[in-house]
Amino acid sequence: MLARLISRFRSVFRGRNAVILVPMLWLFVLSAVPLLIVLNFSFSEMEIASVASIWKWADDALTIKINLGNYLYFGQDPLYFDTYLSSLKFAAITTLWCLALGYPFAYFMARAQAHLRPMLVMLVMLPFWTSFLLRIYAWKTLLVSNGLVNQLLMALGVIHTPLQMMNTPFSLTIGMVYAYLPFMILPLYANLVKLDVRLLEAAADLGASPWKTFWLITVPLSKRGIIAGSMLVFIPAVGEYVIPELLGGPDTLMIGRVLWDEFFSNNDWPMASAVTIVMILLILLPITIFNKYNAESKSEEQA
């Protein structure tokens, strides 16, 4: 019996299976397990200083008490809908700006001489060498009413009274675009650098001006890079907490703050978990679309 078990175990965990097992286990422990805990919490209630268990074992019977109150509460307070919406809005604005700024940047990098490219990639990554918090704080010193930007504009005579830039949607957008730009540039660059230059020559040969070639060939062929970069920016931007806290203001309430309030101010872990689950569902939607597109276009990549 034992021998059979061992041999069965061996046949399952041999070769390719064993190799796959390690990352699968890793994914399970680091992403599925925490997610399941959060999901479990979201159906629970808070006691004084602990989360009530929804599983109860008593009299040889397992009772599961699922509390839907946290989810139902979303309908009772427009706070959640409004902040989800405003998070999606700021994430979308951030993504569009990153794309608009990152694309020419990535294009320039991909077209630069091959020996310059590693250095340009380094330059894009350079900000990561300093603390994220410090870099966001630095924006604060630039944007405050007696900060460098205002001083410069006033010295140039462009304005006469300081502009209110800090704690506005403007400062938030600047901070978000600044922080997430590399995540747009790098996948775009990785995509554009692979672009077959002969396709551009072929387009030129057939009479397309450089501008037309860009829109008709380069952009469509970098679609996957655009989508990958947009996902990398959009998804974390939706749940962003630190940047709105430091640079945002009364008009920039995002779901990250609501989540913080639920978890810390209200000490309501189940509600915080429910907010998280809904946020994950919201983010899952664009990922699903991306994966679908990815699968479709994968076969197109190479003939």
Binding site: L199, E201, A202, A203, D205, L206, G207, A303
Partner: peptide, 27 residues
């Protein structure tokens, strides 16, 4: 190149992968 009345058939063709045959020819 785009103003020359010359066309080229490229080595390994350089067909536009995102366009179908018809659109490649019509480009």
């Amino acid at each position: 190149p785009y103003q020359r009345p010359i066309n080229m058939m490229f080595q390994s063709y350089a067909l536009f992968p995102h366009l179908n045959v018809w659109d490649n020819v019509a480009f």
